[in-house]
Design a protein around this nucleic acid. Structure first.
Lengths: 222, 222
DNA sequence: TGACTCTATATTGGATACAATTATCTTTGT
DNA sequence: ACAAAGATAATTGTATCCAATATAGAGTCA
């Protein structure tokens, strides 16, 4: 997940549209393109040294993925989510990822649990730095999702996570440090999955995402 | 939900891209464009009397919504879902719509429940005709979703329903008639929501979608 | 000063033109 | 007859061009 600000020159075999898509998504996820920003296709095009059409396509795709909003004849703006919408996205992820855990409990093995344990340690050590924390946090959740035998479900969960990332980043920057309880939260989650009981695991994950993430984001800052 | 096969001439104010999108989506949902069909942008363009660019954008949007698949330099094909993928989509809908019912129980009023009751009657009467049945079935579920205060969640549920519609249609055509138990199933669902207990409602809907729809589709035909 | 109209500019939507790639057909050799 | 190779056509990807629309600004009049 590199987020280099400058021109990602078209590497071998990468289409112009893919380049534009990757560029814009990275700008949005990183927060460099803030919500509400008006994105002019022509500017992006010349920044990347390509024409406007592939940029248009990238914008359309990003908009149907929720990252941008296209207003007819008035261009595209980076989707600015209000607290309600952010809350709704977290809620959806909570529900979906909760269900994913139900499936994970019956598919994860010793190795998977060990990996999650390691990820938890990394997460604890990464508390001071926003980028590290987000990366480690994603990896912790991914450690479980890797064992969920539902590719589309996993893709959707990750999509939602990306969509909310800029706001998580903002919040973390404000509070500067993730709390100690974050680690405790995740440790409890891990043990719920270790229990092997699908219902317990589902509930734990649902509550975890709702509690930790939504509360911190919506009520504390943003 | 009209699905006219012939040219939907560009009505007042409708952009070419919107026209292409609506046209392709209707063709796919109705089953006229079967899964696996290679869609040539130029053909669609001349069919609709527009150029290729807005069609490309429509295709890209449809692909990011799961209706089509774009292979680099090799065009787009209508997504052909296997039984596993269909099952996964139903599963996701079951989970999301289950959660939606949790919220609905605390927001629905007398009028909403009456509407659901009426929709149930219509559903029962529409059992012989595939199109009527699908419409009535959607309306029954929508009667609840109208009372769910989470717009994105509702949109996602409907998106999944549209994506699986062609396959439901195929299955219904084979079995020619929806069973009596379909009505019973939905009646039980309604009473679960009437109970006013969020957890009962959530479970009922989740089980309902998984049981009725997935079983009929995946194990009976398709 | 402030609202309004008209004009100039920027931006978007769409069509066409061209280049790059893939698919199809034909030819050739065995 | 079959496979390989080359030529040809079809299709996709991208750039450029033009028209339609929206935005911003200058001037005008009360």
């Amino acid at each position: 997940m590199d987020l280099s600000p400058d021109r990602t020159q078209r590497e071998q075999g990468q289409s112009a549209q893919a380049q534009a898509y990757a560029y814009l998504l990275a700008e949005i996820r990183s927060g460099r393109l803030e919500g509400g920003t008006h994105v002019v296709a022509d500017r992006i095009a010349s920044t990347l040294g390509i024409s406007r059409m592939p940029v248009r396509e990238a914008i359309r795709q990003l908009s149907s993925e929720g990252f941008m909003t296209i207003r007819s004849n008035r261009g595209a703006v980076v989707t600015a989510l209000g607290t309600e919408e952010i809350g709704e996205l977290y809620e959806m992820r909570a529900v979906l990822e909760g269900f994913a855990m139900r499936l994970v409990t019956t598919h994860i093995d010793r190795q998977g649990l060990d990996e999650a344990d390691i990820a938890l340690t990394r997460l604890d050590r990464a508390r001071e730095n926003v980028d590290w924390f987000i990366t480690a946090h994603d990896q912790f959740h991914d450690a479980f999702l890797d064992y969920c035998p539902r590719p589309r479900l996993v893709a959707e969960i990750r999509r939602i996570r990306r969509a909310t990332e800029p706001y998580l980043r903002m919040t973390l920057k404000v509070s500067s440090t993730a709390g100690q309880n974050t680690t405790d939260e995740h440790r409890e989650l891990l043990s719920a999955i270790r229990s092997g009981n699908p219902s317990i695991a589902e509930t734990a994950m649902r509550e975890h995402v709702l509690r930790t993430d939504v509360e911190e984001l919506v009520f504390r800052g943003a």
